[in-house]
Design a protein around this nucleic acid. Sequence first.
DNA 1: CAACTCAATGACAGTTCTGTGACAGCGCCT
DNA 2: AGGCGCTGTCACAGAACTGTCATTGAGTTG
Lengths: 226, 226
Amino acid sequence: MAPTLLIVEDDPALAELLVWSFEAEGYKVLQTPDGEEALLIAAETPPDAIILDWMIEQLSGIEVCRRLRRHPELASVPIIMLTARGEEEDRIRGLETGADDYVTKPFSPRELIARLAAVMRRTRPALAGQTMRIEDLELDPVAHRVRRDGKEIALGPTEFRLLQHFMERPGRVLSRGQLVTGVWGHDSDIEERTVDVQVKRLRAAINSTGGRDMIRTVRSAGYSLG
Amino acid sequence: MAPTLLIVEDDPALAELLVWSFEAEGYKVLQTPDGEEALLIAAETPPDAIILDWMIEQLSGIEVCRRLRRHPELASVPIIMLTARGEEEDRIRGLETGADDYVTKPFSPRELIARLAAVMRRTRPALAGQTMRIEDLELDPVAHRVRRDGKEIALGPTEFRLLQHFMERPGRVLSRGQLVTGVWGHDSDIEERTVDVQVKRLRAAINSTGGRDMIRTVRSAGYSLG
DNA sequence: CAACTCAATGACAGTTCTGTGACAGCGCCT
DNA sequence: AGGCGCTGTCACAGAACTGTCATTGAGTTG
């Protein structure tokens, strides 16, 4: 599932640029120019991160930040502050208030995206690129979880390793021999036919929720995912 | 316990200033001017955070960063990069490599301290004294209290440390080995199966009030909370 | 279509891994 | 000393997972 982002920015041109940039990165973006409304939106659908302009109407960014931190549901949502001022005092106040990072205008969208990714990598490892995804199938190696279409799928250890091996090489046809050494290890004396059985088990698991068979059998060559 | 900091900086004057500043803040500080040595120290006694100069001898800061990220034990240690260059390209490369934040020279120690605090608040809430919460389970490291659904839960010392370790890494699967070194310490010669027993005790405690089992067993991998 | 090759399946027995209860040792307090 | 709470280890039972095999089924070729 795409991570949701709330952008609070009252300069229409900049707001549009940001929305566009982050949507291109695959984020689901909510946006408002207004501090009060930002709090309402955040309470309604807690985003995975917030981009907050220091100078906005109604409530100052710093006040929004403070209130977010006081809200138990939202206290742990990462916040990146945007500010035109470069003075150190302001940066420090921002950080002390609970912002996780802060970016000085002018900045390029690319930098902001990189910073957000850094923050997300920390707070939501599952959302920040660690997770591998192919169509509606996702594998989070850190949490050791697999989902298809959002529904969790239970896999045994070998099935998990096998799937991980496939997902690291999407679309590629892997021979039984390659799979044996890759998944079972160099020195295993496993029967090659055993691969068939594990593939069958993996198939049963990831197709149990319905949906097409994502593993393709390539006769006399091997298997591929995707 | 004071959080440990590793400072990698080859300018002696700056290094000394940083060591002094952070020790005054109550951190335990390790320091080296050398990239290779930094990796060794980090592997030996994983610090709670790393301050890393971009331009250092032997290995560039960026390379050190990359290697740290590849090391499983150290992958989640927050890194703040120090750089004299202000070019955006470098910042982005730094962040993409896995740094959590980056500070441009010249900077005041006070700003660096504020930034480190912001990063730590996010990654090691316990060190910042913040109470951590996962669903209806909360742990207050300062008061040494644990509650589930508002009801207080009594834990033994080891159970408490184990739970804290889990809550600092929610959702993450931790191997028995990682738990032994993380909860019992590097040099303990504890039987790995002992982890099972403590997990069982912890489970019994936090599930005693009713509610689902929050600890997930991941066969042949370890346990995770959440 | 028949022969042949390769893949899918179901059954199964062996192995590996986890959950548990029991127990002895330790440090602390009374 | 005796009681108490906490810990680490062990042994055992049960659960989960795995590799193999025999059989069935699908695809290919002449």
